[in-house]
Design a protein around this nucleic acid. Sequence first.
DNA 1: CTGTTAGCGCTTTCAC
DNA 2: GTGAAAGCGCTAACAG
Lengths: 356, 356
Amino acid sequence: MKSTHTPTMKDVAARAGVSLGTVSKVINHIPVGEKNREKVNLAIKELGYKVNTYARGLKTQETKMIALIVPDTTNPFYARFTQYVEKKLYEKGYKLILCCANGIPEKEIGYLNLASQNKADGIIALTYTDVSSFIPAQIPIVSFDRYFENHPVPLVASDNFQGGFQGTKKLWELGCRRPVFIRFRSKFSSETDKRLEGYVAACKELNLPSDCLDLTDPPDIDASLKAYLEDHKDSRGKLTLDGIFANTDHQAYHAMKILNQMGYRIPEDVQILGFDGIRKYGIDDSALYVSSMCQPVEDLAYLCVEILLKKKEGGVVPSLSLLPVTYEYGGTTRQSNTPMQAYGASNEQQCKHLGI
Amino acid sequence: MKSTHTPTMKDVAARAGVSLGTVSKVINHIPVGEKNREKVNLAIKELGYKVNTYARGLKTQETKMIALIVPDTTNPFYARFTQYVEKKLYEKGYKLILCCANGIPEKEIGYLNLASQNKADGIIALTYTDVSSFIPAQIPIVSFDRYFENHPVPLVASDNFQGGFQGTKKLWELGCRRPVFIRFRSKFSSETDKRLEGYVAACKELNLPSDCLDLTDPPDIDASLKAYLEDHKDSRGKLTLDGIFANTDHQAYHAMKILNQMGYRIPEDVQILGFDGIRKYGIDDSALYVSSMCQPVEDLAYLCVEILLKKKEGGVVPSLSLLPVTYEYGGTTRQSNTPMQAYGASNEQQCKHLGI
DNA sequence: CTGTTAGCGCTTTCAC
DNA sequence: GTGAAAGCGCTAACAG
C-alpha cells in the first residue's frame, strides 16, 4: 500500500483490526458492537477515509443524482425553479446534475440517457424541443409543462387553463371590456397552450369577443405587436382594445414597451396582464415586472422532486398534477375598477412602481 | 438472465459471440477485427446496451463530473456564470453537478467533499463563507473570486483593482469631482475587496478626496444609505457629492432608488456607477440596470473550466488569473462631460432607457 | 454480533 | 487480434 493511495475500506479494516464487513456496517449505520464501531470510526478519521461512490453505486445501482434539464438558467423563472429543485433534492440526500439545453435537442437527449447509463437515478425534464421518442423506457422521469405523446410520463404544471380563465375574469373586474390575448409560441405544444383556452372560455362566459394575436415563431415579436396595435386604432388614434393578456410576462413586457413607445398610458389606456410571475432580482424579490398570473414556482419544484422520488421507489404517482396560479398586481393593471382620471401622471407612477 | 434485466457487457459478448474483452475494446475504440466490431455493434444496438458508468468509474477513477458551488442561482450574475460553465463543460464532455450553497457552510463543505468521494473529478467554487480549511487536499479545484488562505488554490477573478481604478477615472472624466464609494460587504474577504482599493488609488492620483461609506453587514442597507445621504447635503439641500461608485450593481440600484425617492436626478445631480454588469433578462440582453464596470462573465466561466481541467491533467496552472472589466453605459452616468441642462426631463429619459 | 465471501460491470494485463 | 482472468471498492448474504 503506497502512502499516496487514497484509503479504501480495506485500509480502514486493517487499521481498526476488524473485517471489511464490519467497516461496511459502521458506514451504513447497521448495528455493530460499540467497541468496534469506535475503532472503525477512529480509523476512518485517522485515514481520512471516504467511501468510493462508484464502488457503492456498482453494488446498489443508486447514484443519488437527479438530472434536471432546463432550457436556460438565465431565465429567472427557470433559475428559481432550478434553485428550489436543488434545495429539495439536497434535503433528500440527492445531488443535481444540471443541463442547460439551450434548445439543442442532442443535448437534451444526451441527458435523458444519463439515467440509463447509471449516471442518474432519475430525470426532471423541462424541455421545449420534441424529444419524446428518446425517453428511455422504465426510467423515473417527471416532466414539467410538457406532455410527451409517446411515453406517458408524469406531468407537473401550473393550472394554465384556470390561470387563463381567472386572469381574463380579473381583467374584466378591473374594467377591461375589449381584451386581446397575445401569444408568440414555438411550434412545440405544451401545457401552457391551455392559457389561451382558458381565456377563450372566460370570454365566452363574459360575452366578450375573444380577440387574439396568436403567432408561431414570428421573426420579429416587436414588429408583429406594433403592426397589430396600429391595426387596432380608431380614427381618432384611440385603441379599440383596453386590455392585453399576454401568454408570458416576457411578452407582456414587450407589449408594455411598445405601447409606451406609441404613447399610450398603462394601465389607464390599456391594462396589461402577464403570466408566470417573473420577479426582479435583488432589491425587492416580490417586485414583478408586470401584473401577472403567478406560477407557484417553489411548490412546482418541490412537487416534481416528490413525484420523481416516489416513482423511483416504485410508488404510484399521478400522471398529471396541476397547481393553481394566482393573480398579483405588478403595476400594469388598475388597482380597482375606478375612473381612470384618478391616476394622474401615469408614467411617473410606473417609474416609481418599478423602483426606478 | 431475466428479460427485464438491463443488458451488460456480458450479454453483448454472448450475443455477438465474442469475449468480454473484445466488447470492451469496441466500446473504447481500441482496434478490433472488422468483423467482430460489426457483430458487437449490432449486438449493442439490438440489446440497447449502455455502459454502466459506475463499473467503468470504479476502474478508471473518472466521473466526468465537475461540481460547481455558487451562492445562489437566482442571482443573474451567478446564473450566467453557471450557464457558461455548464456550456463549456458539456463541450469538453463533462457534466455539471450544481450546488446552490445559499450561505449554508455545511452544504458547501458537503460539495467540496464530492471530489474526494469520487463523485466528481473537480470543483469550481464560488463560495462566500469561510470553508478554506475544509478543502480536500490534492483535489482539482478552482476558486472564483475568493482567496483561500490555508489551501492555495488557483484563483480566477476579474481585475477588481483595475476596475475600481478605471471606474473612478471614468467618473472623473464624466465630470464627477466629489465621488463617494459605497460598499456593504460581508465579513468574509474576497477579491472584490480590491475594488475599493482601486478607487482609493485613483482618487489619490486625481487629487480627489476618497470618501467612502463602507459597512460590514449593515442591518438595513437602505436606511444606512439614506442616513449617509442626508448627512451629505449642504444648507440648501444640495448634495455635497456628485458621484456614487457602488461596490456592486445591486448596491448601485439601491442608491438609485433612494436618490430618486429623495428627489435627486440621475445622472444630472448624481452619477451612479455600479460594478458587475448585471443585465436584465429578456427583452434586450444587453440592457444594464445601471452604468457599470462589467465583469466578463463568459470568459471568466470558460477560464475556470480550462484551468480546472488542465490542473486535473496534472498541468501547471496560474495561481491567479485576472480578467479585465469594462465600463458600460447603463443610464446612470452622463454620456459625456456636457452641461447638465442639455438633458431635460431626466426621469423620462431614465424610463425610456430602461425600456419601460 | 462478526468475519468470510461472492459478486456488481467493466477495464486491462497477459498469454495465446 | 482475441479470450481468459484478475481485480477496482464496496455491499449483502451467509456461516460461525
